[in-house]
Design a protein around this nucleic acid. Structure first.
Length: 479
RNA sequence: GUCCCCGUCGUCUAGAGGCCCAGGACGCUGGCCUUUCAAGCCGGUAACACGGGUUCGAAUCCCGUCGGGGACACCA
């Protein structure tokens, strides 16, 4: 490979950023960074009915959230602008005209209705439809038809050759010409189809390596034919394994909600974790699991990409997310937690308990959303006691112990985890009972339940006033 | 249906002929730690799809079978 690769991600803006697309983008981005190359973002917005500007924005937002930065593309006009295919129409026309002039493409006047009928008939009889070349040798429009109504088709080379290429991920792949047909390059309105726009742009943008999902391996063959017809050297290709849903079918927007990158943001997954998870689907570096961005830059190479499709594993994503919550600075996690708490109606901006909260809860939550849910307990006024827990821990001798703890902590000049724990410990010792016997009633009084961080932390998190008031309420209730 | 690609624990994977009666991770599970719950630590569970070759030797190479996925548009 040339020393400075130029790679690209070319999504079609017909919806949100898909998880598979995000991984393709990530890998291309990493490849560029690792080898000092350039990463280009190009919008293949040639599907007139489905492409929307909202989708363009959604894709940009998704990439930004994941920290995947492009060097050339929307908002970063470079030497190969524009980066929207619908703004490059005259370029496509020029090349199409050239191909027609050279006899390598031709105008086709067949109507869609005719073609559809033929296709249906062929398929009904069990075959697979190939364009029969009806208009291949036409010199002029049929009677009553005009040139500007025609689509332009690529003329496949005749004979029994074989198209082949060496894929960086899959190895040698080939397909006989006889399996290919004369495909449409340009619609009558001048808007290109995928195989045409893609090749023209990849070449003009000096792309050296095309890395895309495996669903594109078959379209590589007609594209190769086009490079040949144009006299251009094709780039290298790397076809990445697919990401499958739990049903083992290709992750799709329609059937799999987890295909939406931003859904994960909303459920409290962090970008570090999502990138980490997704890069490990189809690629690995020895036994490494938690991988930082810098390590990705250092290690990633398309040569190490696998060949087998991977199934989406939500459990592992969750595990990775927790690993990342423990790895990232507490303050960073705290900042990210704020919106989730605000969504629950708590204004916590600047609250001094945020960082201690993260410290206590990140070992007990796998997502920011989960952490926020648990954290709500400490921002609310009062608490609802779980009946079973209260019956067990807020009765009899326990209440006496709880009272002693209350008196001890109320007398504390300053609330710190150490001081608070110290009170519980001394009550346990002076009363000659185990720590659990003392801590559990306090825990139930504060959280309403039997599980929480360490008892000192729990008290601190609740805050002096709220903690005392909850204990009083428990004492009152218990008689 | 045709073509293309793929096939190691339930899942993600290591493995590029002997280091593998197959290693790691998630999950599940036993234990330790412990004021609860986690986290952490230690241990367990579980796989080379099948059949033929090639070779002194195959998870690794070849062929076949079976299985899975993908592509077959004036979508990308």
């Amino acid at each position: 490979m040339p020393s400075a690769p130029r790679v690209r991600f070319a999504p079609s803006p017909t919806g949100y950023l898909h998880i598979g697309g995000a991984r393709t983008a990530l890998m291309n981005f990493l490849q560029a960074r690792r080898h000092g190359g350039t990463f280009i973002l190009r919008m293949e917005d040639t599907d007139r009915v489905r492409s929307t500007t909202e989708s363009v924005q959604a894709i940009l937002d998704g990439l930004n959230w994941l920290g995947i930065d492009w060097d050339e593309g929307p908002g970063k006009e470079g030497p190969h602008a524009p980066y929207f295919q619908t703004q490059r129409l005259d370029t496509y026309k020029k090349h199409a005209d050239q191909l027609i002039a050279e006899g390598k493409a031709y105008r086709c006047y067949c109507t869609r209705a005719d073609l559809d009928a033929q296709r249906e008939a062929t398929e009904k009889s069990g075959g697979f439809f190939k364009y029969p070349g009806t208009c291949r040798e036409l010199k002029a429009p049929p009677p009553g038809r005009r040139e500007d109504e025609a689509v332009i088709r690529f003329k496949m080379p005749s004979g029994d050759g074989t198209a082949s290429f060496v894929d960086k991920a899959l190895g040698a792949i080939s397909k006989p010409y006889s399996d290919l047909d004369d495909w449409v390059m340009l619609r009558a309105d001048g808007i290109p189809l995928y195989n045409f726009g893609c090749v023209i742009d990849d070449h003009l943008m000096d792309i050296t390596l095309v890395a895309r999902g495996q669903e594109h391996v078959n379209s590589t063959f007609p594209q190769l034919m086009l490079y040949q017809a144009l006299g251009w050297t094709p780039p290298e290709f790397a076809h990445l394994p697919l990401i499958l849903g739990p049903d083992r079918e290709k992750l799709s927007k329609r059937k799999h909600p987890e295909a939406d990158v931003m859904l994960h943001k909303r459920t409290g997954i962090m970008p570090e974790a999502l990138n980490n998870f997704v890069i490990r689907l189809g690629w690995s570096h020895g036994n490494d699991e938690v991988i930082t961005r810098d390590q990705m830059f250092e290690w990633f190479d398309f040569a190490d990409v696998g060949t087998t499709s991977g199934v989406w594993n939500p459990e592992k994503l969750l595990w990775l997310n927790q690993q990342w919550m423990k790895l990232l600075p507490e303050t960073t996690v705290a900042e990210r937690l704020v919106p989730f708490l605000e969504a629950k109606g708590f204004s916590v901006q600047g609250d001094s308990r945020l960082v201690p909260l993260v410290r206590a809860l990140r070992e007990r939550a796998r997502t920011l959303e989960e952490m926020a849910t648990t954290a709500s307990l400490y921002f609310r006024k009062g608490v609802t006691l779980d009946e079973k827990a209260a019956a067990k821990h807020l009765s009899g001798d326990s209440l006496g112990l709880l009272r002693k703890v209350r008196d001890g902590i109320a007398a504390l000049p300053e609330w710190t985890v150490e001081a608070l724990d110290g009170v519980v410990k001394s009550v346990s010792e002076s009363s000659a009972v185990g720590m659990g016997k003392v801590a559990q009633p306090v825990r139930v009084a504060i959280t309403g339940n039997t599980t929480s961080p360490g008892i000192g932390e729990t008290l601190l998190l609740a805050g002096r006033d709220e903690a005392l008031s909850r204990i009083d309420a428990a004492l009152t209730r218990g008689g």
